[in-house]
């Protein structure tokens, strides 16, 4: 197992290196010029050229790339081309907010998705199952930008029972922080919960038809014990996998959710950086997202092995 983890970590490092290198080189091939973001579009080409020189963007791409890789290896992501602030400082503030959003929505999705999935399986083809299936179908088929905008307009603008937009630091106002977190987290959780619910339902139904469940019932065990102690545990294995896969999808979903709710996480930072062609910021964020994604996959695989005694990695 140890050797497996080491091997996977090495593979992950190579993968992240490749993604980062690919981005670092190809991002500069995008048309656009950060000098005009800094100077405005009325600037003369001469002044823009002077700014590019000052920023070191006039050097060949491979020199810039080597320079960047060298700095990153020393833990230095450099400064934003536009704001001249250290990227690491900005990331240190923004990344936890995005992770918080993902974790909060994940918890919400699990807390809602698994019990509803169990109910649906338990009352297969009866009214509760049909109701839950309709809800999950709505959840899966509603795009995040639609559900997010609807929530915002209904709860934030029409009824004004929740803050529509923005962010409050948890140290400044813990309750306000949670209020601001609620709608973005629910928006992200809707999609996730629907997927978890469907997976729980189908997996549980499959397990409930297994021989050992029939045996348990034949022994005279009650439905609750059969369901929760015998069937659910085994049914949860694919659910855990899907949660792991979904965590990666959520990372993508935050781009839209953060944009709609003005949540100052890493995704809004990335969007602004792409619009402004702030190359080092884009590179740093891609590097971090790639690392997170690869690690998440690794952790999911390991959890899978841990939860299912039949699986081992050698």
């Amino acid at each position: 197992m140890g050797a497996y983890i080491v091997r996977r970590l090495i593979q992950s490092a190579v993968l992240v290196f490749l993604v980062a290198s690919f981005m670092a080189i190809f991002i500069q091939l995008l048309p656009g010029d950060p000098a005009y973001t800094i100077l405005g579009d009325k600037a003369s080409p001469e002044r823009a050229a002077a700014v590019r020189k000052q920023l070191g963007l006039d050097r060949p791409i491979y020199v810039q790339y080597a320079d960047w890789i060298g700095n990153v290896a020393r833990g230095n992501f450099g400064n934003s081309l536009i704001s001249d602030r250290p990227i690491l400082n900005d990331l240190a503030k923004r990344l936890p907010r995005t992770i918080e959003l993902i974790v909060a929505s994940m918890i919400l999705a699990i807390v809602v998705g698994i019990p509803l999935g169990v109910i649906a399986a338990n009352y297969r083809n009866q009214m509760p199952d049909i109701l839950v299936s309709i809800i999950s179908l709505l959840g899966v088929s509603t795009p995040v930008f639609v559900s997010g905008t609807l929530l915002l307009l209904v709860f934030g603008v029409r009824w004004q029972i929740l803050p529509a937009t923005g962010y409050v630091s948890i140290t400044e106002n813990p309750l306000g922080h949670l209020e601001h977190l609620l709608m973005p987290a629910v928006t992200l959780a809707l999609l996730e919960a629907a997927v978890i619910l469907r997976m729980t339902r189908s997996s549980l139904l499959e397990v409930l038809s297994e021989d050992y469940v029939r045996t348990a019932r034949a022994k005279g065990l009650g439905q609750r014990i059969v369901l929760y102690q015998h069937a659910l545990r085994n049914a949860l294995i694919p659910v855990v996998t899907i949660i792991g896969i979904q965590a990666g999808t959520l990372l993508g979903g935050t781009v839209i959710v953060e944009y709609i709710f003005n949540w100052p996480g890493v995704s809004t930072y990335l969007l602004a950086a792409i619009n402004q062609r702030d190359y080092p910021v884009i590179q740093a964020i891609i590097l971090i997202i790639a690392t997170l994604f690869v690690l998440l996959n690794l952790v999911t695989d390991l959890v899978y092995a841990a939860i299912d005694p039949r699986i081992k990695y050698g």
Partner: peptide, 8 residues
């Protein structure tokens, strides 16, 4: 950003 680069 692309438009600005192209027009300049």
């Amino acid at each position: 950003a692309t438009e600005v680069k192209k027009h300049t």
